[in-house]
Nucleic acid binder design. Sequence first.
DNA 1: TCTGGGGTCCTAGGACCC
DNA 2: TCTGGGGTCCTAGGACCC
Length: 362
Amino acid sequence: MKGSCSEKQRIVLHVDMDHFFSAVEEREHPEFKGKPVVVGADPQKGGGRGVVKTCNYEAREFGIHSGMPISSAWRLCPKAVYVRGNYRLYKEVSNRIMTILGKYSGKFQRWGLDEAFLDVSSDVQNLEEAVELAARIKHELLWNERLTCSIGIAPNKLVAKIASDYKKPDGLTVVSEDSVERFLAPLPVQRMLWIGEKTGRKLNAMGIKTIGDLASFDVQVLIQRFGVMGLRYHKYARGIHKAEVGRTGGTRKSLGHESTFSTDTDDCEFIFQRLNDLCQGIHERVVRHKLLFKTVTVKIRFQNFETHTYGKTLPLLTSRLQDLQKATQKLVQDHFAEGNKKLRLVGVRVSNLKFVGEQETL
DNA sequence: TCTGGGGTCCTAGGACCC
DNA sequence: TCTGGGGTCCTAGGACCC
């Protein structure tokens, strides 16, 4: 029913840079042009342990995609250009892009290095003007940064995000309010935001293959099966999502580092050395951001990928390296002994953060 | 095929307080 | 002597996002 809602129709843009990291690499290295480019872990001639972060469309032709083990990528295309990635550069480029995007609307929200939402409801009169604005954004990004993006335009963030993914690269997809359900219905349910592999498989097993299937499914059964999330999935499937485009990024809730060993190990001295390095990195960031923390959590992953986290909340807020190291060591000692299964990864994270502004931290 | 590293949010049980 | 219900914090695990 149109006209039944008195609220002004929102117009939200989602801007998604096309294969951002590898696009920056291509731009910086003209000699990569036309070749498959893979950004990610060191493939070590097929023996590397990490994953692919991004790759360009030439690499995708070989079946390579982000998240894939780097060893598999190597098998599919050993001739590709493999780079570790220059994250400082990506961050700089990202900052310039976000500055450009921020000019187009006061209601702006960065999402990762290469995505952003813009609420342009107050900046344009209708969808046609929104399309013109999107075209101007694309043009400015290409002109200034020589990078392309894909843009989705829709009545809310959820649908805009799915729309930007609909046509890539260099795409522009518009979904008007009355076409939201028609647009979503035929898409596989896994394309819905917040429905990943696990939930997607459970839904498939219930006979739900498309977002349309989910939208018409008995909501009570979904609630029984997934709790409050079931209700949300049902709303999302009908394109209902009220979240505002945030002005600021919000405050940080936690901060951590983790590291995978190049070979699995049970050498305690080696493990504690790595933990200390992680603690030092975290401590530097804590001090730089003028934070105090109260909770320390360690993560250990065994050879067989079995993963545990153990945390301890300290009696007082602190930013001291020795407090972090002591808590970390205690937690790991309590849950890991030499001669046990070998470890693949260790991680440290601090949470329960407090910003202390100008105050001096020791 | 063999699975990174940065995060956020949700659940669920238990402790503890009023 | 036996009993309640709400609220908050802590801990561990899991799913999901980029």
